[in-house]
Design a protein around this nucleic acid. Structure first.
Lengths: 151, 151
DNA sequence: TATTGTTATACTCTATAACTATA
DNA sequence: TATAGTTATAGAGTATAACAATA
């Protein structure tokens, strides 16, 4: 039995479960996951057009318009014109939005830390060794294929 | 620099991002994540009361009643009396529900496999080494604390 | 004519409150 | 009286369709 087959057979299932676990372990917030993800996008990558945000999330353009409107009403983002394209709207994070996201991440990190401390030292060591790989996966662009229309 | 501090500092952030990544990479289905999670609960653990399903998900009792009603209408679960408690309702998975969940997992596994194949062999090896730890985390009961009311 | 974004409308889902049945 | 579950009602969020502005 090679490590390759173990990886192929078990990791997808484990990742799936892990995502569910993270969803349950993460403290509830007043914003849903799509909203936090869109906010994180503009916080980390700078101003984005509505279309860009749409393609990064599983939501329609009108849905993103409404979401950006709510985020703007809450003071977490601002909307402005795109100097390069008169049709486009640039969505930018405000300092408040950035601070809010950092606070959410701190609260989530605390919860994760409490759970990680329950793991055996062997398990903790193997996780530390896989940090780079997990990060590479977490930052990997999602391949199209399940979604025929996705570009 | 110990591996312990690297783990504490980076892993929570990576896990958070990884969960978002999984959410985006997983093919969209007609059922949302709470519905699939509740279905998976009864498929894997056998019949459960509505209250049990409520405590495992972030949803209210009326919300779970409605969700179970939809799952039952779709033929994925059935409801029956609890022989030990006349007040309770036992929710059980049907063969159709079990097959549906297996199909969802197969489709998700295919997508994950395609992404995993993009990783370097070093990263794949470290992931294989962390499988046990990831699984331990994914199956760890969620600790209360962020949620004062949670048992 | 195609693309970007918004508005109008309807539907799904979930929360709070009130209720019934059983312990 | 407390617990398990349901029903009634209202609100948030998102999709489809139609529209306005710019490329």
């Amino acid at each position: 039995m090679s490590t390759r087959s173990a990886l192929d057979l078990q990791l997808p299932e484990v990742l799936y479960r892990l995502a569910t676990w993270v969803r349950r372990a993460t403290p509830a917030t007043e914003w849903n996951s799509v909203a936090l993800s869109a906010l994180a996008n503009v916080v980390q990558n700078g101003p984005k057009r509505v279309t860009d945000l749409v393609s990064a999330e599983r939501i329609t353009q009108p849905g993103m318009t409404a979401l950006v409107g709510r985020l703007a009403a809450a003071g977490l983002v601002t909307r402005g014109p795109d100097p390069d394209d008169g049709r486009a709207t640039l969505v930018s994070a405000t300092p408040v939005g950035q601070q809010y996201l950092e606070q959410i991440h701190r609260a989530g990190a605390e919860v994760f830390d409490r759970h990680l401390s329950k793991l055996s030292s062997d398990h903790r060591a193997s996780l530390a060794g896989a940090l780079g790989a997990l990060s590479a996966l977490a930052f990997m662009p999602v391949l199209s294929g399940g979604d025929p229309d996705a570009g």
